[in-house]
Each structure stands twice: as structure tokens, then as C-alpha cells.
Write a protein that binds this DNA or RNA. Sequence first.
DNA 1: ATGATCACG
DNA 2: ACGTACGTGATCATC
Length: 920
Amino acid sequence: MKQEQSNKLLLIDGHSILNRAFFGLPDLTNAAGQHTNAVYGFLNIMFKIMDTEKPSYLTVAFDEHAPTFRHKMFAEYKGTRKPMADELRQQVPMMKQMLTAMGITVISKEGLEADDLLGTMARLAEDQGMEVTIVSGDRDLLQLATDHTKISIPKTKKTGTEIENYYAADVAERYLVTPTEFIDVKALMGDTADNIPGVPGIGEKTATAIISQYHSIEAAHEAADQLRPPRAAKNIVEFYDQAVMSKELATIEVHADITYDLQAARLTDIFTPEAYALCKEWEFKNLLGRFQIQAPRNVAEDAFSQAEDTQSLTAFAEELAKGQASYIGLYLAWRQRSAKEWEDASLAKDGDGQLSLFTSQKISEDACQEYEIYGIALSDGEKSLWAPMDDISCITQVLEHLIAQGKRLACMNVKEAIKICTPHLQERFLHYENVYDVAVAEYLLQPLKNTYVAEDLASEYLGISVPGYGETFGKRSLAQALEEMPKEFCSYACYEAYICSRVAGMQWESLKEKQMDDLYRDVELPLIFTLADMELEGIVIDAKALEEYGGRLMGRLVELEQKIYDEAGEEFNINSPKQLGLILFEKMGMPGGKKTKTGYSTAADVLENLAPDYPIVADILEYRQLAKLKSTYAEGLSNCIAPDGRIHSSFQQTVTATGRISSTEPNLQNIPIRMELGKLIRKVFHPKDGFVFVDADYSQIELRVLSHMSGDQNLIHAFLQGQDIHRSTASLVFHTAFEDVTELQRRNAKAVNFGIVYGISAFGLSRDLGISKKEAGKYIDDYFLAYPRMKEFLDGLVAEGKEAGEVKTMYGRIRPIPELSSSNFMQRQFGERIAMNSPIQGTAADIIKIAMVHVHDRLQKEGLASRLLLQVHDELLIEAKEEELPVVKKILQEEMEGAAKLVVPLTIDMHTGYTWYDAK
DNA sequence: ATGATCACG
DNA sequence: ACGTACGTGATCATC
């Protein structure tokens, strides 16, 4: 950023602004669990002022010891003096680190408050003819305002940050006293937060009135007999010494004994690579745009060579193969066609008879049909190379060659590489041993990150800054980027390969340190292959049946819509919660269950309470249900059917905080089952000809995991006896003989069991059961009496979470919990529930992942045609060849139940059928 | 882009 | 005094 020459000095009251930012912004944390909101807010305020002021000099002043600046900070915070919040304290050194990285002068001095530093520097600078701006959230600084020193006070408002500016004249206008007199006003009225006693009985109004007339405490004292409120007059005399002392305390030092080298505070470019790296690390994505940094040159640009043809690529690859590097970074560029493009392609080809290209058979023969390949980047951790290439066989040739040399391929997305490189019927040349997924490994180390991209890894592991895809290419697709910015594209691809190759080894060491190397090697990495095959396989959908289903919904929806309009007396958008709320609660005057920030809540549980009294509500509920089924499932699924007649959902391995996998485009993990009408959707999921579905789901896996991890004998006993677990809980909690447990008792006990797994809270349980919080609390107490080890275990998890900042599953998967160190009670409470839930949910997730890998590998090893298609958290769906049915069932039973050795047995329920509906 | 709602485990 | 059950993703409306 080019600085205009000016004689402007910007001074920032560091702690004050940091504090402002901290309380003005919601708690932000980065993936590493660091709190960042204050630093982020500070930078925003600083940039905003710099943009308008364009100063040539800048200095930030801090108090020497953070706790000594306690004062005004918490004055606005209910007047109580708490220790500085931990989340804020942590950010003080971070802020200084950022400022230092930006080359900004940071000043602090033992025994001096920031106020005194600011005052002194301002005077020094003004004496040298500078224009000074002091930024602070503290109005006490107004006493420093002159004709050449401006006090800027940022205000965080809804619309953004607004800044109030005060020169001496502005102070006089706003407060009716001069900046110097402002001291006397404060001395009279006092300030508890600052330990300034003031004069009793004199508040802001009286103080201002007195000083604006007499201009100083001394003068007011002399004229005490004329002072207006008699009580003030009396007290000014009686407490005169105290008033004088207060004035001394309130006065900011402007001649402090410091050396301040103005020239050293001259601004150069603050957008340095170091600052950029910090912005990346702390995830200040909005600020990155301010940095002009292009691909940094510290990775030796000239090391990148560009190959135009396959031959030179092969030559380079051979060269790489001879090298010593144990990891070869790999970056495959691909673009998955959208459903729309498939549609267009099919239509276009329809006329000239090439539709067969997109039939199911063709695709299963050569899954690469799905991709457009643009090229490949390779790196050995020193040199990198990008080779444009659209023929997958050239790529596989090179990779096979590298693998034959014993190299390991490290890349950002092994699953896609597998899908691209491994046509179904060919023997797979990518194996567990010769690939390494940098993103999946990073997910284990930092499971809370939103994205796993090379540039973040570069700054974390290598300390270098690389622009992200969007920074260079904006919203361009890969194809557009390659077309319009070939040079940058080359650089980008090369960097990605370079980073993967460099990071892999370091990351592996981190995994070992954190004792997650086994988890990675034995579970997550093999799982990549399992998921790739599941995605390639897809699941057959009966498109016609799906359309009929949608049609049926449509018919009823039209009826309901009209009925609702009639009942409401007008037409409106039933899908709009806002409009619906107005109709129900204002126009029709229903008793307002008020909720949500934006207005009335119209959520199902609210409407259900109204349904018995208002027929329209029942219709709306039915309408909602049908609309959901139609848009999300009937239409949503239909849009995802590939030309092969199947749906190829994506399974995400780096998304959830607990270690579960998730499913997208479409989500096949939330297909309706609870309501019969929704469950019917499952009839459109078919096995292919000659195959049959086998669906196996774990029975109570989370409670079994809990019984194992807690070691509670009562829970273990129930599982060992094969008892109905909710009935058993009811029996123990309600002191009822097992056989005499009522349905209601069982239902309540079931809710309690859920509560335990979720991280119990009386409120949550009471809401779920529709009972009072007190009753719910009693249930919980009784539960812990019945299961003595359970409280100990759950408290232990919370303690562990607080101690280590993270909790672990049985297999060592970690879940950081920054919420536990929050000063916000609710946040902390949330953290405690996470600490209780994550090890349980996560261990169950680990176990089914192990089962998936084992099932997948056995199907493969035993040469079966049956395939694993879906995972739904505690359930696996297999498409089994009919002849293989017995062996498939055996495999499922053995591998799912044998996936973990717990003190209680793991059991599954299994069903077969010719639709997913029938297999449940 | 965000919030509300609702589908699943 | 506060205001909550844990984990996801898709859709629609609204900003």
C-alpha cells in the first residue's frame, strides 16, 4: 500500500481498542481453537481509520501489564471487576505479534499507563508540527484533544463501525467544557472503575455545570458560597483535598519520561508476508484481500518448469522417481460435471445415437467418463511441474511408474484420485501403502476446520504464504482458470503438489506425536478406498416410481393449499415462516408462542400445540410435511440421478467434528423413515438386477460404547443379559421390577438414555418429555444413582476436556473444545455437553468405519460381486448378488460385530429386501 | 449470505 | 439471570 506523504501521526490505545473489539464481536475461534475476535475487530478498526486518515506514522500503546488496565474495561460490564476474560487475555500477545509482523511500532513502559504514553507522544508530535489522531474507546482521553490532536472513538453498531471524532472544539460543543476542564469534571464526579473518589453528591450534570461556569475546581472552591446546589457547595469545601487528589489522578501525563522516536514509527508497507501468514492462520479471510501478495518467490519460481507434452512429463517423473523423496506430491485437476451438464449432454447426443456413451454399462466399465481431466502436477518437494493432459491413461502411466519405484503419492484428495484413476474393471494400482491424503490427515489433527486447503497447510507447516484458489482465480471454474490464466494456474497446481509433498512427512510426525497414526493408517486411509468405491457404485433409483410419488404429493399439496387459503381468508406463501406467522398469530389471533429473533416461531412443535384448536394448523403441518418430501426428496433425488440411472452421493470424510462421515449431493443419510408416508420414498431405491439389498444396523451402539467406556456394571450387566436397554433403565431408575415397567416409564427412560448420550441437561430433558425442569432433574439424579459409575465417567470427560482442551475417542480421535475455556456460561455449558457426547458419538463412528473397511476388503478379497453402497451412521446397506447372500450376511455379521472388542457384545439387526423400504 | 425449518442417526 | 439437549445437509424465503 502506497503511503502518501503527510504529517499525520496515528496513535492507538491498544488495550482499549482490543477490549472494544472483544466485546463488540461474537466469539470467533480458528480451527486450532484460538480465540480471535478481539484481534480481528482491532484490525478492522485500525484499517478503517487508516483508510480515512492515511497517516504516515503509526504507534500502538499498551499498558505494561494487561491486568492493570482492568478499569474501564469492565466498568461497562455490569460494574463488577472480574479478572480479564481468558479469551481476551490470550489475544493480547497475538495482537502484539500481528502488529510486529506488520512492522508497526508497539510501545509500553513499566509504571506507565497507556494513557500517559499516548498523551506524551501526542504532545511531542504536535510540538514537531504533526497532526495527531488518538484512537481509543475511552472518553477520558478527550482531555488530550487540541486543535491538532483529534480523539477518535469507534462505536460498534449494527451497521458497522462508526467513528466519533473530537478536536478541542468538538469536546467543548458536546460536553460544554474544554478538554482541560474535562479533567476537573471527572475529578468532581469521580470514577469508581478508575479508583477516582470525586466529591460525594456531585454527578455528571452538577460537575459539568460547575466547571463550565468556573472552569476549574480551584476556582469553584474559591467561589463555593455562590455554588448552586447547596449540597455541592458544602461538599466541595468539605472534600476539597479529595477533589484535588482526584484531579491529579484524572490527569493524563503529557510529559512522561519516555524516549519516542517518531521517525521509527514511520509506516512502511504493513501488508507483509508475515502478517499475511498470521491472517491465514487466524482465518481472517476478509482481510486477505488487502494483501497484494502474489505467489511468493521464496519457493524458487524458476524451479517450476512447464511441460507441454507427456514425454517430458514422463522424463521428469522418472527423474523424480530416482530421487530420495519418500513422498511425491500429486495434484490432479478435475471437474465433476453438474447434473445440468449431464442433461444437456444426453439431449445433444440423443439425436446422433451416441446416448449409449452414457449408459450405465459404459460408465461402470470406465468411471473416468465422469471427469474432465485437465492435467497433472508433480513435485518431489523441491521441484514442481504442471503438465496439461486430458488423457487419463497418460496420467496413470506416470503414477504407476512412480509407485513401482516405491514412491508414496501425497495429495489433497485421494478419494477423487482413486475415482479418476481406477476404472472399475481394471486392477487397482493405488493401494493403501502408496498414497497419503494430506487433507484427511489434517482433519484428524484439526477436525474443526471448515476447509482443508493447501495454502493453509503451507502457512502452518512451512511458514510460507500462498494465495488460495479464490484469491487468484475468483469465481472461475477450473476450466476457465486454465483457459484465461494459464500461467497462474500452472503456478497454483505446482504449489499444491509442492505443499503436499513437503507437508506429508511433517504431518505424519504430528500424527505420531498425537498418537493418531494408527487411526489414520488403519482406519481413515483405508476408508478412503471404501468410500471411493461406494461413490463409484452409486445406487439404482426407479426414476418412474419417484416421479409418480412426486405426482401423488403434488395432488394433495394443491388441495391443501386451497384449503389453507380458504381457512385463512387470503392467499399467502405458506412456505414463508414470516407470512405464516403473521397470518396465524396476528390475523387469526392464535395464542402467540413467541420465539426466534426474526418473529414468531412456526416450528412444528409450536404448531402441534395449536393443532387441536385450529383446523388450519393441522393442514399447514400436513402441507409442510408434503412440501418437504416433494422438494427435498422427490425432486431433490430426481435431480441427482446420473445418466447411468443411479445416484452417486458423495461421502465427506473431513466434515464432522466427531468423526462421523457425512453425505452430500444428495444426502442419503437423511432419507425419511419415521413417518410412513416419507418412508415410502425408500421403495424407489433398488438393487441392480440379480442383486438384493442387505441392510444391517448396530443395535444401541452408542449406549454399548458408553457402557464399555464408563465401566458401569449395571449398564454392562443389562447388555450382557441381552435386555431391552430402555426397559432396564426404567426398571433401575423408577425402582420397578423389570416385568412391571410401563410403556410410559420405558419412554421416559429412553429419553433419559438419549440425554445421557447427548450430554445431559435438565432443561433439554424436560423439554423433550414435556415435564418440569425439576422433575427432569430428579430423573437425572435417579439415573446417576442407578448407574453409579456414569457420573464419575462423564465428569471425568469434562475435567479432561478442561484440562487438555480436547477429548478423545477410544481410538484416539481428538475433538478440541474451545468452548470450555469461554467466559460465557452458556458456551461453557455447551462445551461440557460436547465433552460428554463426542467421545461416545466419535467412538461409535470409529467402530463403524472399521467395520466398513473390513466388510469392503473382504468383499474384494473373496472376489464377490456384492458391494457396499451406503453408510447411515450405525447402518450399512449392501447390494448383494443373490447367490452371495449367505456369505454376505456372514461377512456383515462377523465384521460389524467384530469391529471392536468391547466388554459388551456388539450386535446387529439385518434385513433383506428388493427395495430399501423392504430391507429395513 | 443467513436463518428457519425439518429430514436422518 | 441467563437459555440448551449431540451430530449432520437441503430447501426456501429473505436480506
